[in-house]
Design a protein around this nucleic acid. Structure first.
Lengths: 121, 121
DNA sequence: TTCGTATATAAGCATGAGCTTATAATAACA
DNA sequence: TGTTATTATAAGCTCATGCTTATATACGAA
């Protein structure tokens, strides 16, 4: 999920779309006109932004009116802070890494060298 | 710059590397061992993270010891907040968009329709 | 100077991502 | 029902990105 959000943000056109939606809600054809970009391109980027949870949409007749989902956005950054601060052994998907990291404590890059040189003696 | 940072964060292996570096500084060969990933792959990802300003490195003999640059990281998010909050017409690279957006005020999607239908009358 | 260790870089490949053009789907309306 | 407006999706292309293997570079130690 984190990855998805950052990937969505890591593209210039999507950043621009998001910036505009931060000002006010806009439908696809408004974005098309403001950014001077064709419709499929807008739609495709909006899809990515919606999947990442950064944009929400409301329907009105044929139009899909999009807006920046500020709450969801801030939640993502909560999630990221958690990811970076929670102890490694409590993070799902880091079990092996945790063990190898602990193991490294007695086997650091530097210490490995010392061991090898002492063996040779 | 914003784009670069988000792009760097939008990749699973790089996110993992960054997570580990948030715990403590590590050299390439440590990361190699902890993540069970080959050396060039680690180096290439570190390069991206360094270029994005998320990781800094210190040299010690042949080793490059990497760490998470928390300050630079937080600056990026300041920058992002600014980007999202500063008035559009003050944002470089949004001049045309600003004008077209203002113009849209009297020419919204809905209003355009009304105009067209009233013309027909 | 020669060798080993740590890291960077290059080349080649496969996959992914963004763009354009064309077409489909949906909804209001005559 | 047929037409128009709005948006979504598909196909094809090109370029970017990540991975692997092989090689180069930098540094220390013998």
């Amino acid at each position: 999920m984190l990855e998805m959000t950052f990937k969505a943000l890591g593209e210039p056109t999507r950043l621009r779309i998001l910036r505009l939606l931060a000002d006010r809600e806009l439908c696809v054809c408004d974005l098309e006109e403001i950014l001077a970009i064709n419709q499929p391109r807008i739609s495709q980027h909006l899809k990515v932004l919606k999947q990442a949870g950064l944009v929400k949409e409301r329907r009105e007749a044929q139009r899909r009116i999009c807006s920046f989902d500020r709450e969801a956005f801030e939640q993502v950054f909560e999630e990221f802070n958690l990811y970076m601060k929670v102890p490694l052994n409590e993070l799902p998907g880091f079990q092996d890494e945790y063990e190898r990291m602990v193991n490294l404590d007695e086997n650091t890059c530097e210490k490995k060298i010392r061991k090898k040189t002492s063996k040779k003696q």
